[in-house]
Design a protein around this nucleic acid. Structure first.
Lengths: 127, 127
DNA sequence: CTGAATCCATTATGATACTG
DNA sequence: CAGTATCATAATGGATTCAG
């Protein structure tokens, strides 16, 4: 008897996916990947493109992504120094995912509450 | 001249997407949404399905998702009590995204380092 | 037995200053 | 420009306790 996909995905696939979720679960990783999915960015370009992020966090998240093989870091020995971040070949395969996410948001994003970013804020009259 | 999509996405779209990133950036949210995308889950079912998560975190993340209108919570007045978590109509639109993510991982997930979950762990001989 | 709340330790993230 | 260092705060992990 061969095992075949039943509904949408298999239960075992969940096991496999966990690593994928882990490497994308950082607070700014999705946004960073979204940007890098479009073009190559320099450190400060990313910093300016992501309003709330700090240098510390940007550095940390980029290193995480780099360690996971999703982002490559290229240092140019120039003055002033220049460091470019680019998606790796592996990460470029995420484009369909980014497109699907964008399509979803374009369709359902309009019907959204007000929540800012993190939890902790009172859910305003959430009963 | 009409403005048309140039590369993949527009810069302004990034602005719009930020809220989407925020509501999916929780540490376990992607995984929770992945599971709920397949079927309805009870609280403890989710807890068992997500190995590393604690009750505290599961509760918190579910409330976040609920507050963002991605998950609905249904309480059944039974004994023993039962609470089911289900994707909202809005969140169901995420299925293509989940599928794209799964397809990506199926293709590129094999070429992965060892990193466990978070940063901080030495990237085992990573230079 | 299910689900939530509390206390405390550890980690992640935010803010600012400083260096190559 | 591209980080690193340091400290403060928030988020998360772990165990226990509480409520229905």
């Amino acid at each position: 008897m061969e095992k075949q996909t039943i509904a949408t995905h298999d239960v075992d696939m969940h096991e496999e996916m966990r690593r994928a979720f882990a490497m994308l679960s950082g607070k700014w990783k999705l946004e960073i990947m979204w940007l890098l999915n479009q073009r190559v960015y320099r450190f400060n370009e990313l910093r300016k493109a992501i309003p709330g992020i700090t240098q510390h966090m940007l550095t940390a998240q980029l290193r995480d992504l780099e360690a996971d093989g999703l982002v490559s870091r290229t240092i140019y020995a120039e003055v002033p120094p220049r460091v470019e971040y680019e998606m790796t070949e592996k990460a470029r395969g995420l484009e369909p995912t980014m497109n699907a996410l964008a399509a979803w948001w374009a369709e359902f994003g309009s019907s959204i509450p007000s929540r800012t970013t993190t939890r902790g804020r009172k859910a305003s009259g959430q009963k």
